[in-house]
Design a protein around this nucleic acid. Sequence first.
DNA 1: GGTGTGACCAGCT
DNA 2: AAGCTGGCCACAC
Length: 110
Amino acid sequence: MKADESFFEKVYDMVRKIPYGRVSSYGEIAEAIGMKGSSRMVGWAMNASHSQTIPVPAHRVVNRNGMLTGKHHFASPTLMQELLQSEGIEVNDDKVVNFKELFFSFKAAQ
DNA sequence: GGTGTGACCAGCT
DNA sequence: AAGCTGGCCACAC
């Protein structure tokens, strides 16, 4: 973790640490970068993720309920779901199936 | 440097 | 049960 990195890069770095086939929440990431309660900032940062040279697996980030709230911000509304399914994550009705089991906690990882 | 905005969250009505 | 409100804080204008 580098302190010099801006808020965006911190978020991106955290999101990239989410393992293949796993998902996490905005609030979890916000807390991981020391901005607990500012989960909106995380989602807002993802809005600029497309500008990054290094790909950011934003599709692995969902809201607290496991719902794909940000899917509409992808190139295609169905792209997020397809990406998740391609990683073995089941998605039903815009929600991650077994979200509780697939949830990745940064605190537990440390 | 004030104001608006945002892919959320929790609490209240 | 479902909708609304406030709060959280970084960033662009």
